[in-house]
């Protein structure tokens, strides 16, 4: 009796510790995160971006086209399995931006989709789990196994939907949970969302370090986030 009680107590203590740990990892909900002291003295930052197909990809490519690629290098483009169009758009952007410089410093990586279009509801947990495990391999495991294990898989990860980007966000949180270096998360809501947030926007809003929208109205609820006008 006393034994089973102590097992139960330890179990509950572990649960509480996990929950407290997760809460400690969440970004401050009120501050916009504008003040950030970086101890990274390197002159370049490793950038990762998820290309979520269709309009998501177009907007992500437009966002990246704004950046100085001599600062953000190397660049990792993450695309869904079979999304050749997004992979091609990434290569087109690279050849456009780096036409003058020698040797492009980028990679295109694929992850399985969390949910395919028209997929039946009951099989979603299976594909979502498969997608998450591949994301964890990419985000959490590969930096641990590489020679420079103090380096995160990227310094910053840009997300703009749809669903599969939640898998990447969770994988980043797994890294944080076990105390490994993790990328800063930036979510940019679509230009199409004028009055309300998308489902991925709503889900990722409390989790990402920086939440950015392109029209002011979705922030009228007083929740966290910034609006700098149109970014694409």
């Amino acid at each position: 009796m006393a034994f089973s009680l102590s097992v139960l107590a330890i179990f509950w203590l572990l649960c509480v510790a996990c929950i407290l740990r997760i809460f400690s990892l969440l970004p401050a909900q009120k501050s916009s995160g504008r003040v950030r002291v970086s101890n990274n003295t390197s002159t370049t930052r490793k950038l990762a971006v998820f290309l979520g197909s269709g309009g998501h990809t177009s907007e992500a490519i437009a966002l990246l086209s704004s950046l100085d690629f001599t600062r953000f290098s190397p660049r990792i483009y993450i695309v869904s399995d079979g999304d050749n169009l997004s992979a091609q758009k990434a290569r087109d952007l690279e050849s456009k931006k780096c036409a003058s410089s020698s040797g492009n410093n980028f990679a295109v990586l694929t992850i399985p989709r969390a949910r395919r279009v028209h997929q039946s509801l009951f099989s979603i947990p299976l594909t979502a789990f498969w997608s998450l495990s591949r994301c964890m391999q990419l985000v959490t495991l590969s930096p641990l196994l590489s020679s420079s294990s103090s380096q995160p898989f990227a310094d910053v990860l840009i997300l703009n939907g749809p669903g599969t980007c939640l898998s990447l966000c969770i994988a980043v949180y797994v890294s944080k949970f076990i105390g490994c270096p993790a990328p800063r998360l930036i979510y940019v809501e679509s230009f199409a969302r004028v009055r309300s947030l998308s489902l991925s926007g709503k889900l990722l809003r409390p989790l990402v370090d920086r939440f950015v929208v392109q029209w002011p109205q979705p922030l009228a609820d007083g929740g966290r986030g910034d609006s700098f006008g149109w970014l694409v």
Partner: peptide
């Protein structure tokens, strides 16, 4: 329609990354 203003996202990310 105004052209894409690349300075907005560039400034945001440079600031975020400590440049």
């Amino acid at each position: 329609f105004p052209p894409l203003d690349p300075s907005r996202f560039r400034r945001l990310l440079d600031e975020e990354m400590g440049f």
